[in-house]
Nucleic acid binder design. Structure first.
Length: 113
DNA sequence: CCCTTGACTATCT
DNA sequence: GAGATAGCCAAGG
């Protein structure tokens, strides 16, 4: 297929493409879910190598902030795509659409700041 | 083979 | 909470 033939890349692709819209996953989470713990850094490479469009923008850092430098084109692009799916940004951190309780939502929207 | 780099993470100050 | 430090692991020079 169009994707990499490597096992690692395929595993990463499977996980990343399984992320639901409006949700986000951490690099470490993806790596772990793919069966490759401690490979957070390799996740980015695998995604970059994919020829097909992958929802790479749904992958964020462990603290939910974006991996790119603030203000960079890539940053704005990713943030834009996420916001289009309803993901909000509070203090530079991505807030998934799904929130279980109202109190959590209130907390997330206004933030601890 | 050694050294640097990076879309990372956890921990300490 | 922000900056520094140390682990981590594969790729490329």
């Amino acid at each position: 297929m169009a994707f990499s033939q490597n096992k690692f890349d395929t595993a990463i692709w499977k996980v990343v493409s399984s992320i639901s819209p409006g949700r986000v996953m951490g690099y470490g989470e993806v790596a772990r879910a793919a069966g490759y713990p401690r490979h957070a850094r390799m996740v980015s490479k695998a995604m970059s190598r994919s020829s097909e469009p992958l929802p790479w923008y749904r992958v964020v850092r462990s603290d939910r902030s974006l991996a790119f430098k603030v203000g960079s084109e890539a940053y704005k692009k990713q943030r834009s795509l996420l916001e289009k799916e309803g993901v909000q940004f509070t203090s530079g951190k991505a807030v998934p659409v799904y929130s279980d309780d109202d109190k959590d939502l209130d907390e997330l929207l206004w933030g601890p700041d």
